[in-house]
Design a protein around this nucleic acid. Structure first.
Lengths: 333, 333
DNA sequence: ACCACTTATACTAATATTGAGCATAATGTG
DNA sequence: CACATTATGCTCAATATTAGTATAAGTGGT
């Protein structure tokens, strides 16, 4: 065993996982790496292959970049450098999400006696040109979480499928206390029985489904092949959990910080802005109130130019007033 | 060089830094390790010593625990186990703050060709018995950030000292653009010229002072010995930055999640609860509105018992309804 | 030119929330 | 018993939010 390539016992290797988000045609997209065969290109780092590829070698994964202690001054600069290098996109906004150090996250690393610690990042980009990342494509994020999109009313999969399965899971609890606990958590996360739906609980919902063995990532989930796409497309390792963290965080953040603008082109109409917010939050907004809110916050100013391709009356084009960025502005929705 | 003890080139070592918060006599306290001499006790891990001790060996530091990949299943369980072991306190709440991978954070690690990555955690404890951590004591957190405590009105140090120094720094900008930038950021963070004070910008304020060479941690800060205690007590390495992150995060969090209760005893009066919130946010609240808010949220229920040591009319004792914990409850203040 | 259709934008009424304060209740103390 | 002290109930105005109606300004078709 060579110490410089193969980690010694009890050591740690750091990887950077990026949830790279963009809006394409008013849909929320996330950059995912797809692997359709065992064939691996040799260009990637050993680490990249190890993490991006799940055991069964079939799932989509979040793009992954290694952290080189000797090359990168900080973790964030490491992330920025490899993302910008590989995607040619300028990153408007980067936020550290969470650092996962879970045992068993990557069995191959474990076997070598090392632990893979992955730092998850959320990156927002405006430009969506094709990337240089191997096999990377933009995917609608609701493909992985179909129950999170309420823009066309309550998702059918909820009533027809998930809620019944969860009720069954509640019934199957070992004892009364456990049953009550399951019921209450389901109420809160999935808005059962009059409890209102909370768009920020993306991670909590995913984890409840995981606990109830209703997602394919769970090893003991029933009829795996079937469930894999039924309850959203599965991802490699715990990448769907990281994505859920990102979506929940972003949904929370747009309510009190002006991060939406990082996803917008330089100028935009108020309806375009609204559609983006709706795409992220997965719900519809009242148009007149939305524009009143936006205008009151003073985050935006008219450019004087007019957008005529609206399909109706032409709209004013606005620009984000980047000057006020630092202030803890509320963009409540 | 032995690969199993001495990290090889380009490798990474992970440390867990904990901001452990408790309320003692209505003051916000944080557990800090004090080192008054060069003498090191042999009981600590090499890593602990390396990180807890600054170069000049004089500053206070946040307690530090190593992450053992072979022993700890997750990062959080690693943190919980060493904190609970060393403090004998039960941790009510743990939140990951941020993962710092800054170059030059620990020169000794760097010299050995390794990078220290530290994961910062915020931990809230109720019980405040003496701890088993070497030299650890509870310190009022406003000792490190005297400008953050507005409970007795605007802190004198601000008007008398910090604001003038910042104005001077703004004046000294190289050009007009830089000057305007400095002025705007100072307005936003320190509430200059009518801009309202924002209690959450703890980190941003500290970093502005750092940039203006007004804190002792900055190597080129003017007359170091003097400034060290004038603008708050300095800490080792970037620990004051981690503490600022923790305070800002906690101040933000109590506004929309019921985390205060993790710092409360099992039963408490509404005034006690208010005092704790005030201690954390560093500002005073309107009493009647506070209780109206708390009661409306339904996070709390009367126990029926009565507290008679109030100094006036006896008060009802309340208990936190832990059942509603998961719900994204708003405890707006 | 006129129509149907689409989107933009102004304005309004009803309701809820918030901020500030008054009034009263219940205790201990000199 | 006056008085200081804290608890708690209640009001009132200012402000914000929700859910509309009404009107403006374009498009394309006939």
């Amino acid at each position: 065993m060579n110490a410089s390539t193969e980690p010694a016992n009890g050591q740690v290797v750091i990887g950077l996982n990026a949830v790279i988000v963009a809006i394409i045609e008013e849909q929320p997209k996330v950059l995912v790496v797809q692997h359709t065969s065992e064939t691996l290109t040799a260009q990637h780092e050993t680490l990249t292959e190890r993490t991006a590829l799940p055991h069964n070698n079939r799932h989509e994964a979040l793009p992954f970049g290694p952290f080189y202690p000797l090359k990168h001054r900080t973790l964030e600069s490491g992330l920025r450098s490899w993302v910008e290098e590989q995607t040619d996109h300028e990153i408007g906004y980067v936020e550290q999400l969470y650092t996962f150090g879970n045992e068993g996250r990557d069995p191959r690393e474990e076997a070598a006696g090392a632990r893979l610690v992955s730092v998850g990042y959320l990156a927002l980009v405006q430009d969506t040109a094709p990337t240089a990342i191997e096999n990377a494509v933009w995917q609608d994020w609701y493909r992985f979480f179909p129950w999170e999109d309420w823009r066309d009313g309550p998702p059918t999969i909820l009533e027809s499928d998930i809620i019944p399965a969860l009720r069954k899971w509640i019934e199957q609890a070992e004892n009364n206390i456990e049953q009550k606990d399951r019921y209450e958590r389901t109420c809160i996360t999935f808005g059962l029985d009059d409890t209102p739906w909370n768009d920020e609980l993306v991670l909590e919902r995913y984890e409840l489904l995981y606990e109830a063995s209703l997602v394919a990532e769970r090893q003991d989930s029933l009829d795996k092949g079937d469930i894999s796409n039924q309850h959203g497309t599965a991802m490699a390792l715990d990448h769907r959990r990281i994505l859920a963290t990102a979506i929940g965080r972003l949904r929370g953040k747009i309510k009190y910080r002006p991060v939406v603008f990082e996803l917008m082109p330089p100028t935009f109409t108020l309806l375009q802005l609204q559609k983006v917010v709706e795409a992220l939050s997965g719900s519809l907004l009242h148009k007149q109130n939305f524009r009143r809110l936006i205008e009151k916050k003073g985050l935006v100013e008219a450019t004087g130019k007019i957008e005529t391709q609206t399909g109706g009356r032409p709209a004013n084009q606005f620009r984000f007033r980047r000057e006020v960025l630092m202030e803890r502005q509320t963009l409540g929705i």
